[in-house]
């Protein structure tokens, strides 16, 4: 629903020297396209190396493994913090991975969108670790893109103290430009898309960086082949 639009917009049109909004906007000409040049010809392996180096530089723990070893890698990570674990309902995570985690830590929940807000959020709030899969990753800023809808609830990578984001190696792209291209191409957008570029942090006290504020205290990326 839209309320109060006519008068509001006409005031703006008036201020711009016309009676009503034009049918089409003027043409936007970019004076430069520098954003498209960043690592435009880099090989996949190079992008992956840049991504890893940039992630480590901001305190993200980066692991690499084959898809087969993902369960083992996750068990090792959760061993440090203990359970419970909450997993996104994603084919990469719900098979072997979930089985192994249940065996090792008993409490491992898969986000069940059908079960409603309270139940899911309560499980995520109790969990020590939340695991989700990224749609893609960006080398320049060590960013992952999360489509938070359906089985990948927003809370999974927000409430638990430790956040683990699984990235498919071939989805690592140069920079934000490519992610925005991807979003632009989507026919429908999920209600929530989150770009994550580090654990939560603040510099509000004397500009001293403190890792871990409202979101996760620790962030782990696992790159799978």
């Amino acid at each position: 629903m839209i309320t109060g639009k006519e008068l509001f917009i006409s005031r703006i049109s008036h201020g711009l020297g016309r009676a009503a909004p034009p049918d089409t906007p003027t043409r936007l000409v970019y004076p430069h396209q520098m954003q498209r040049r960043y690592q435009a010809h880099a090989a996949k392996r190079e992008l992956r190396d840049i991504f890893i180096a940039n992630a480590r530089a901001v305190g993200i723990d980066v692991r690499e493994c084959s898809e087969r070893d993902l369960a083992v890698a996750l068990v090792e990570i959760v061993r440090k913090t203990g359970g419970p674990v909450v997993l996104a309902d994603d084919p990469l995570l719900t098979g072997d991975v979930a089985r192994c985690l249940v065996e090792a830590f008993t409490e491992c929940h898969i986000w069940d969108a059908g079960a409603g807000r309270e139940e899911n959020m309560a499980l995520a709030e109790k969990a020590k670790v939340g695991v989700a899969r990224a749609e893609m990753a960006l080398a320049e800023s060590a960013t992952t893109l999360l489509s938070c809808h359906g089985g990948n609830g927003r809370s999974i990578t927000l409430l638990p103290e430790n956040s683990v984001i699984v990235i498919r190696a071939e989805t690592i792209l140069p920079r934000l430009t490519q992610a925005m291209d991807w979003l632009h191409q989507q026919k429908t957008l999920p209600a929530s898309v989150n770009f994550v570029s580090g654990p939560s942090s603040t510099a509000d006290i004397e500009l001293v960086r403190v890792q871990g504020v409202h979101g996760p205290l620790e962030l782990v990326y696992i790159i799978v082949e």
Binding site: N120, A191, S192, V193, N194, S197, S200, G215
Partner: peptide, 16 residues
Amino acid sequence: SYMSLITGPRGPQDAD
């Protein structure tokens, strides 16, 4: 660290 893009209220498949 975070950039959140919000398009409409939660969808029919979303719990939170």
